[in-house]
């Protein structure tokens, strides 16, 4: 027993065991179960039979499911691009010497700290057809005559949910990129300014390349979060109007839990996995593995 406790391999295994069990129980098992269910015709109250790819074939032919795939991509691409641009801009702004810097930095994080369901409810009010503060302001300013129906029209609803997602996601991007900016040595900018670089050239030739590793990580996370977003949509629109804002995650939930079609919902959820893997691989191979980060010894 005593010798066993001295053994590095045994100790390593022993210390990893609790985490391993947790992962198996709460991550691997549900994931496996979900994938399995996708290949069955399980319904609520009935364990399913193996039906192969039938669910996927059915979903491929289903207009709503296809719309949800389009919505998910539209939502992810537009929100991520804007989150990146806004986040980078905010990070650069916060990296300057501005008064009450730490307070502003803390304030920027606020949308990220507030529970999503709560901020979604706030946006629900902001987007309300009768009580919207945005419509009210615009009307008072005399810019529009009638209240905007933010969540009632397909494209308005899509853009409104994207705006809410951006509001919630920007702080994460901004704070991570700010951390990245602060790792760039100020002497590089000094060297660049002596070398004759204008501020925009310094950004292009120094800041951006040095930030790519962090951009890759942050944007991978951001894309994953956005792609799998559920709460915001579910609170704001429940996928409506006319399924215009249904993402794969919300539609999967609706089909599986509300609709009782466990197999079908699980198949839709499983269909998200290849896209997510592709995003991860793209960031890993495309952005993170740059030769200059790899070092490769001193000689």
């Amino acid at each position: 027993m005593h010798r066993l406790l001295e053994n590095r391999n045994f100790l390593g295994f022993a210390f990893m065991l609790p985490a391993g069990v947790l992962l198996l129980l709460f991550l691997t098992y549900p994931l496996g179960l979900g994938t399995w269910l996708g290949f069955t015709d399980a319904k609520v109250g009935r364990s399913g039979e193996w039906i192969g790819l039938d669910n996927y074939i059915y979903l491929w032919g289903d207009a709503v499911a296809r719309l949800s795939v389009f919505n998910t991509f539209f939502y992810t691409v537009v929100a991520s691009v804007i989150k990146f641009a806004l986040g980078l801009w905010l990070a650069i702004l916060l990296n300057q010497n501005i008064p009450i810097k730490s307070f502003v930095r803390a304030a920027v994080l606020l949308p990220f700290i507030v529970p999503t369901a709560l901020s979604a409810i706030a946006f629900w009010w902001i987007y309300d057809a009768q009580f919207s503060i945005i419509s009210w302001t615009l009307v008072k300013l005399g810019w529009i005559d009638t209240y905007i129906d933010f969540l009632g029209q397909p494209w308005a609803a899509r853009l409104s949910t994207i705006a809410a997602n951006i509001w919630r996601g920007v702080p994460f991007v901004a704070i991570c990129l700010l951390a990245g900016l602060q790792t760039i040595s100020p002497s590089l900018y000094e060297a660049a300014s002596i070398d004759g670089a204008t501020p925009s050239q310094q950004f292009w030739y120094v800041t951006l390349p040095l930030l790519t590793p962090i951009i890759a990580v942050v944007m991978t996370f951001s894309v994953l979060f956005t792609f799998t977003d559920f709460q915001l949509i579910y609170v704001l629109t429940r996928g409506g109007p006319l399924n215009a804002t249904h993402l794969m995650a919300t539609l999967s939930f609706q089909r599986a839990i509300s609709g009782g079609g466990l197999g079908e919902g699980a198949a839709l959820a499983t269909a998200m996995i290849p896209f997510l893997l592709a995003a991860i691989l793209f960031s890993y191979f495309g952005l993170q593995r740059r030769a200059w980060q790899q070092g490769g010894g001193d000689k």
Partner: peptide, 28 residues
């Protein structure tokens, strides 16, 4: 600085880590 016609060698060298030696030297 760029119009003073000076060159500076920094304590931490301030080499651009993402550029090769050639690009570092040719940057200006």
């Amino acid at each position: 600085p760029k119009e003073r016609d000076i060159a500076m060698v920094f304590q931490n060298y301030a080499l651009y880590p993402h550029m090769t030696v050639f690009d570092n030297m040719a940057f200006s």
